[in-house]
Amino acid sequence: MVDPFGLAIAIAGAALAAFMAGTGSAMGIGLPGQSAAGVLSEDPEKFGSLFLLVVLPGTQGFYGFLAAFFVMMKVGLLGGKLNPITMLQGWQIFFACAPIAVAGFFSAIHQGKVCAAGVNLVAKRPEQAMKGVVYAAMVETYAVLGLLVTFFLLNGIKIG
């Protein structure tokens, strides 16, 4: 039997993962996006070498979406038949979503700052573009770890 409060809490967890990681990504992309616009206004040929740095903070939004999607499958929201979730399981799912929600939000914003600095690096030394990407990828590590923890925790919750 489905506890409607348990289901609501599980949905809140999925929504939090998608919302926070997505918001972080939007903010994270905004910063290098502005920097890149500044560079491109003087040097439009750099679009290709700047693209990766601008989109990199967008990955956290996908991670949040993946976690939310996994929760939806777990509780049976996608198949049309809800799994019998209890209040306790609802809370378990909620907290399982927290790592990617929080790590995704903050890492995307900070990655945006690193990427914006990388855009400035490319503006002056285009041949060094990959070094900027490597530094940005260091921040990405912690979003990936957040996603993995969320994934393993959700995987460990047995419903039904």
């Binding site: 910063l31 502005q34 920097s35 500044g38 560079v39 003087e42 914006a116 400035n120 503006a123 002056k124």
Partner: peptide, 12 residues
């Protein structure tokens, strides 16, 4: 961010 990006391109 925009201004600094533009200035970095101009510095070249």
């Amino acid at each position: 961010a925009y201004g600094v990006g533009r200035v970095r391109a101009l510095e070249r």
